[in-house]
Simulated scan of single mutants.
Amino acid sequence: MSQEVRGVISRSKGAPVEVTTIVVPDPGPGEAVVRIQSCGVCHTDLHYREGGINDDYPFLLGHEAAGIVEQVGAGVTDVAPGDFVVLNWRAVCGVCRACRRGRPWYCFNTHNARQRMTLTDGTELTPALGIGAFAEKTLVHAGQCTKVDPAARPAAVGLLGCGVMAGLGAAMNTGNVTRGDSVAVIGCGGVGDAAVAGAALAGATTIVAVDTDSRKLDWARTFGATHTVNASETDPVEAIRAATGGFGADVVIDAVGRPETWKQAFYARDLAGTVVLVGVPTPQMQVEVPLLDVFGRGGALKSSWYGDCLPSRDFPMLTELYLQGRLDLDAFVTEEIALDQVENAFDRMHGGDVLRSVVVF
């Protein structure tokens, strides 16, 4: 039998979000209903509200979540009612060409729940990133649920569902940072600071954090940055080279996603170094560099999708590191808020006052 719960929706482009009643159907084959315990306020949710993703309004926002599986549909075997899970937005199919080649983190056919949640008048909702977790309960594909240790704090490990995983994975998976490497991270919001934390966890000995906001550089130091550069005062390319013996960093991660920051990353890496783009550009952005520089510098130019993570592998491992005190996910939680404070959280995000506001139920 369907359930009525409270959720945060965006009805039209730019309009303030609102809390309203949504209808969550019983799970069908391969689906699960999850009782949400926490959900981070991610910049992607703001993109949805502003029409930056598509115009399939109304949206049920929220996607960076942890909770308890309440019901499962036919054929679901990997999770069961009572399991504590972190939700992910790339449920792998297992049969596409990427999955069959043993690279499921590149799955080209990820999927979500087939049924739609609705308003009480029957209007279908589009769940953000196929999740829609600014709600007391949500309907997802069971493959979007990853079991983790229930001893973990939901508000902290739920952030693995998007931004923190994107940053950690940009360093550890895409960038393949290893012991003794030098790493630079351009942009020190939630994703960038997670990349700093990932580089530290992987054993990098020099970690240069770059931003134009001194507050964010202070945050980066707490996550393991050994050097900080205020790009509004200092040329970041020259500063990164100076911090790495004049050579440039082994791995440079662009967590901003603008042409100018990508070019900084390109020229701030050592010969045969790696550039990782994890910040998301807009469709109109273009970058131009001399092709001879691409050839002459060698190395690798990569983009990082969701930190190239495999949730079934990475979420439990990172949760265990958190419980061991080796990965401070709590430090990403700037504030815990109620469901009706999401619009205010967007304002604080604009002001750069938070790493993450987290809705706690």
Rank of each mutant, 00 (worst) to 15 (best):
V196K: 12
D270F: 02
A255H: 04
L271V: 15
G198D: 11
I207K: 00
V275T: 02
E233C: 08
L201G: 03
W219S: 04
G273T: 12
T274N: 08
A272T: 12
T274V: 14
E233V: 06
D193V: 14
D213Y: 10
R258I: 09
V229F: 05
T226M: 11
G245K: 11
G192P: 08
V252Y: 04
V229I: 12
T244K: 01
E238D: 03
G224H: 11
A197I: 02
V196P: 07
A202Y: 01
A200I: 15
V278F: 04
G273Y: 01
N230T: 00
F266A: 03
R221M: 13
G257N: 12
A265K: 00
A202H: 11
R258F: 05
A194S: 14
K216I: 09
R215H: 09
T205Y: 12
F266E: 05
A202E: 11
E233L: 05
G198W: 11
V251Y: 10
K263N: 09
D193H: 02
A249D: 08
R221V: 12
S232C: 05
L201S: 14
V237P: 01
A243I: 03
T234C: 03
V229W: 01
R215I: 15
A243Q: 07
D254Y: 07
T222K: 08
A231C: 09
K263V: 15
P259E: 01
Q264S: 05
D270Q: 13
G279L: 06
G246C: 05
T222N: 10
N230Y: 03
G192I: 04
A220W: 14
A194T: 07
V275W: 06
A195F: 00
A197D: 05
G273V: 07
A265M: 00
R269L: 11
G248N: 12
D254N: 03
G279V: 03
G203T: 08
L271Q: 13
D235N: 05
